[in-house]
Amino acid sequence: MSAREEVLGRIRTALGETRAPVPEVVRDYRTTDDRPVAELLDVLVDRLEDYKASVLRCGPEDVAGTVTAALDAGLGTGWAPGSVVAAPGLPAAWRPDGLDTDDDRPPVQLAERAASVTAVAVAIAETGTLVLDGTPPCGRRALSLLPDCLVCVVTADQVVGGVPESLGRLDPLRPLTMISGPSATSDIELERVEGVHGPRTLVVVLVS
């Protein structure tokens, strides 16, 4: 008998011939958030900053300039535009002049770059979480991982209240990355320290 057949057989033996009915799952926890958008944005900013991300807010006409300011904040002024890689689908109106664009180069080459700029698919206010879904505006997973500074552009319509609403908007077949603040660890005496293997600097541009 194959291991597959044997393990499945053991499970059937363990559960018995007359199986207990499957219990109903009551979902009486919060699945929506009725707060106005402006309030959700404030919560998002509060939670992002609490986990040591920086947030810059701007209007829709001023995204490229604010991304430049975000890179100034993350890298210090005087960064070379060629050292910053943008996701291939990042809207042209959001891009500062001269940025490099990610292509199908070997992913480890991205480790030499100073920063990356991506969009997000969804942002969760209550947890301060950005979700990237691997579509061209967000870029492949290595892009938001290897450069030491990550700039993410979030638009107000992408912000939801809690985790349940966010999953409803996401495609589970895409490779998803949920990001809540810069890379961190609690492994030394259970105290949180920001900055381990992922980007040590996270700057969020919030467009509303």
């Binding site: 810069p182 961190a184 949180r192």
Partner: peptide, 14 residues
């Protein structure tokens, strides 16, 4: 587990 609202990174793939 870590007493955070959300852990810094969650990855999913299919």
């Amino acid at each position: 587990s870590t007493g955070e609202r959300m852990n810094p990174y969650t990855s999913t793939w299919a």
